[in-house]
Simulated scan of single mutants.
Amino acid sequence: MAKTNPGRFFEDYQLGQVLTHAVPRTVSGGERALYHALYPARHALYSSDEFARASGLAASPIDDLAAFHVVFGKTVPDVSLNAVANLGYAEGRWLKPVWAGDTLRSESEVIGLKQNSNGKTGVVYVRSRGVNQRDETVMEYVRWVMVRKSDLDAPAPETVVPELSKVVAPEDLVIPDGLDFSGYDFALAGESHRWSDYEIGETIDHVDGVTIEEAEHMIATRLWQNTAKVHFDATFRPDGQRLIYGGHVISMARALSFNGLANAQMIVGLNGGAHANPCFSGDTVKAWSEVLDKAETSAPGVGAIRLRLVATKGGEPFKLKGEDGKYLSEVLLDLDYWALMPL
């Protein structure tokens, strides 16, 4: 009897199936240190316990995206080990901060299936959530993944494509208990721009760029325990290149957005996202943002700002799609998220 696990293929998924993902992980300050080493992450709330305490929190939480990567990585062996590509995200919410010492585990429910017309692959929709040691859900999100079939003769399942919200409503965003930006120190945060300084429709070129290194990508993918074959095995793709984990691009672009959005401190909602084109070692990632919406919150001095974050590997800023409606070839990431910012 085989002891090894080849991973799930498209025909192995069933609507309503609940996947309990293996290997819970206790996070520590080590995750923060490595996260800040891999990306030029400088947001003050995640860099300083004292800054976080002055903002009403007990200490500096683990970066929102670091927590996302830990939760996401748990899902890979059961959801995307045999994936062709991770296609998109929706309905993501960060519900509780993750602190050093917390233990995170993940589970997913299959909420949609659609076999592709080529009969060789299909799209699997899952709703995943990360849970801490107190059985509290710290975050949740939907993603959909294109997965290979192993048995090409396996019958196609009934097509079910879930209806997903295009945006997380501002009233559904969860503000961390105690968060208070009324005494916010803009000098220590690095920029003077506050929530009221940004206008809907405004675009921001984040100016800086970072060239993706193979070694850093490999460290990051191992750090998050992401075992997807396309990231590790150079023989798995016909072009012989290892695909850069899409989350690596997300974190790089978010870190680059500090220049112009240093006060967009906490990510609390993920409205949508697409990995528009593959990223490989040697690509230089740059980023720009567009302000899509703004909303007030019940927390003192705290506003919510909805941002489109675009990562590119060249080309002019503020250009996203061609006349055919398709993403331009230089666009790597199109991410729509809510962040919290001082009023």
Score class of each variant (00 low, 15 high):
N5A: 14
P6C: 12
P6K: 14
P6D: 14
D12W: 08
L15V: 04
V18N: 04
L19C: 06
T20A: 08
V23L: 11
P24G: 08
R25N: 01
E31D: 15
Y35E: 01
A37T: 14
H43M: 05
L45P: 03
Y46I: 08
Y46Q: 09
S48H: 09
E50A: 15
E50P: 03
F51S: 10
G56P: 05
P61E: 07
D63H: 13
L65P: 01
A66K: 09
A66F: 14
A67T: 00
T75F: 11
V76C: 02
P77V: 00
V79P: 01
S80K: 10
N82K: 05
A83D: 04
A83K: 01
A90N: 04
K96E: 11
P97I: 09
P97K: 01
W99S: 10
A100C: 13
G101N: 09
S106I: 13
S106E: 10
K120G: 06
T121M: 14
V123F: 11
V126P: 05
S128E: 11
G130T: 02
N132P: 03
R134G: 05
E136Q: 15
E136W: 10
M139R: 13
R143F: 11
R148I: 00
S150N: 12
D151I: 02
A154G: 09
P155N: 08
P155L: 08
T159Y: 11
L164E: 02
V168N: 00
V168W: 03
A169Q: 11
I175Y: 00
F181W: 11
E191T: 15
I200R: 03
I204C: 03
E213N: 15
E213V: 11
H217D: 01
T221E: 08
N226C: 14
A228K: 09
R242C: 14
I244S: 09
G246D: 08
I250N: 12
I250A: 02
F258D: 04
G260I: 12
A262S: 04
L270N: 05
N271F: 10
P278R: 06
S281V: 08
G282D: 04
V285D: 01
A287I: 12
W288T: 00
E290N: 02
L292E: 05
D293L: 06
D293C: 01
T297C: 10
P300V: 03
R308E: 02
L309Y: 07
A311M: 06
E316S: 11
F318P: 00
G325Y: 15
Y327W: 04
P342T: 00
